[in-house]
């Protein structure tokens, strides 16, 4: 049954989400009820940058896909809240609110930023450029593969913004 749900993600097909429930707890994380059985699960967006709230792949602890949730609105309120909470973790990126400085040195670019999680200094290679998505959204991936997002280029502040604009 689980297979048939994920096998054919035909457009607009209505999966019956009535028997699928989610819950979230600090202790156990995300849990999903599929076919009457509760089990621990994880959620991974198929398009983490393009469309992080849609097309969510729900997998069990062995990373086997249980179900593909196309839209949150398919779920009941309780479930979508639980899923939201879990998503917070799986799509977490450092959100940059201020760029204090961007400095190029011998072979690294050093970024000194303030994020919603706290201040951070990170590095990218000189030849690695930030990725610009539409609507002034910018993604940066550092040497350690950590990801940083600037939600709106026009709203970010700091002395380094001028330099950032040269990089995009």
């Amino acid at each position: 049954m689980t297979l048939s749900m994920t096998e054919k993600p035909t457009k607009g097909s209505k999966t019956n989400f009535k028997d699928i429930l989610f819950k979230w707890s600090e202790a156990q994380g995300l849990e999903v009820k599929v076919k009457g059985q509760w089990g621990r699960a994880r959620v991974r967006p198929c398009f983490p940058h393009l469309s992080p709230m849609e097309y969510l792949s729900i997998v069990d602890i062995e990373s086997k896909e249980l179900v593909l949730v196309e839209r949150m609105s398919d779920l009941d309120k309780c479930s979508s809240e639980a899923l939201n909470r879990a998503l917070e973790e799986s799509k977490f990126m450092f959100k940059i609110i201020e760029i204090l400085e961007i400095k190029d040195s011998f072979d690294l670019r050093t970024w000194r930023v303030k994020t919603t999680s706290g201040p951070r200094q990170f590095f990218t290679k000189l030849s690695d450029w930030p990725v610009v998505l539409s609507d002034n959204v910018i993604y940066i991936r550092d040497l350690y593969e950590d990801q940083y997002v600037i939600d709106d280029l026009n709203k970010v502040i700091g002395d380094g913004v001028k330099m950032l604009k040269a990089l995009i």
């Binding site: 202790a27 156990q28 994380g29 991974r44 983490p48 973790e89 799986s90 799509k91 977490f92 990126m93 450092f94 990170f122 550092d142 350690y144 593969e145 950590d146 990801q147 940083y148």
Partner: peptide
């Protein structure tokens, strides 16, 4: 996860003893 990892340490009954979150750094 996308930009972080979570370590789950659990006991025999599957109960989580400790959950740790850290950036990819």
């Amino acid at each position: 996860n996308l930009s972080n990892k979570r370590l789950e340490i659990s006991d025999k009954s599957g109960e989580l003893l400790l959950t740790l979150r850290y950036s990819l750094r």
